[in-house]
Write a protein that binds this DNA or RNA. Structure first.
Lengths: 214, 214
DNA sequence: GTCTATAACGAGATAGAC
DNA sequence: GTCTATCTCGTTATAGAC
């Protein structure tokens, strides 16, 4: 806790890896000091020595794993230029992270945070990392678009992040449904780009109609 | 199991109510035969007498609760006429069900289904009820719209349902974030309606551009 | 820092009285 | 159909040897 990357060398990191693997394979309900110890090849007492409680281990694992993954996409977030590209990036992230199982960890931890407590705090922090990445991309992408003055980018970022998380949980019980949802989102991305590139006349029409409603 | 509504009179229904309340208040991780018994004022042996296993109780509670809620919205789903109205209904459902805690139950059960098994089957079934309600509304609403031939309504229904579930989990750890997400969705609903009502010229332009991309 | 051993407790599940 | 009692096991957490 004394520098930015507290050098969790050795066992501490192995325990974090172990709990992540356990969550990926068997869900948050299967997490215990013993199952984590089994996954790391060590023993359960080390969980309490290094983290004090099981919840604390899960919390730290969730935050650090999410941080690492969001950082890994920083360049690609910054390369996004249209809403369609952003949705496409979302789809890519979803696919890649599903393979690595990182979204599952976040979704599971989020579910486990229902009772409040330490996990709620940790998941709020972890989700915030994704949300802020999406929000800054949205701010850049929507700049100058007919949607700017009506779209609450912060709220949209929350909605998008939450949506992908829900999708992650969903496809674990219904892979085909998840697949078709992703295909639909890809079509949606194309639609958004088309609307964005409608040209000045149509854009002004959209803007005018939107103003009339608000 | 011998007729459509198996008359789960008395204790069996109380156990179902008890597990639902437990999940709402403390999450799926807090569910056990003992906690449910405490919530019903009875004893834990009844769980096994009536359901065999705790998982089976959770599974039946999830499915029956979801079925009841989806039925409660049937009329309102059928009254929907535009995409914007559908999104608005989604927002309404989300608000009402959050108060009753029913979406939380589904989201929590979904998270608990990660390891497969009985819960996975039950949540697939329960989610399917929401999805099919959304899909039939989408089919009706998109009929004749410029989006029809490009939108995969089944996939969209999955995406929308999963999205609202993710939002439900999200706002339990970050209520303000959830609020802003819902506000953003309301704005989005207005935008969709505006695009839908663009008039024949713009509609043809959108269609043409979409075709060029696919 | 890591291990074994163990305490204290809650879990799922069953047996049997009523 | 409901209860109490109990079995067995997994759980968190600690104590203490190494």
């Amino acid at each position: 806790m004394n520098n930015s990357t507290p050098a969790p060398s050795g066992t501490k990191q192995r325990l974090i890896d172990g709990v992540l693997e356990t969550i990926r394979l068997h869900g948050i309900t299967a997490v215990s000091a013993r199952t984590v110890a089994a996954a790391t090849g060590t023993n359960q007492a080390l969980v309490f020595y290094h983290f004090g409680t099981v919840d604390e281990l899960v919390a730290q694992a969730c935050v650090s794993a999410t941080e690492a993954r969001v950082d890994a996409y920083r360049d690609r977030f910054e390369a996004v230029r249209t809403v369609g590209e952003l949705l496409e990036l979302g789809r890519t992230i979803h696919l890649e992270e599903r393979a690595g199982g990182n979204l599952v960890v976040l979704a599971q931890t989020l579910a486990g945070a229902q009772g409040g407590g330490r996990l709620a705090e940790a998941t709020r922090e972890a989700l915030g990392k994704w949300v802020s990445a999406v929000k800054s991309a949205l701010d850049r992408v929507l700049d100058g678009s007919p949607l700017t003055e009506f779209a609450d980018t912060a709220g949209l970022a929350y909605a998008v992040s939450a949506g992908f998380l829900g999708l992650t949980l969903f496809e674990s019980v219904d892979p085909e449904g998840g697949e078709s949802a992703l295909r639909a989102l890809t079509q949606l991305a194309a639609l958004v780009d088309v609307v964005e590139g409608l040209g000045p006349i149509a854009t002004r029409a959209v803007k005018a109609k939107l103003r009339k409603r608000s």
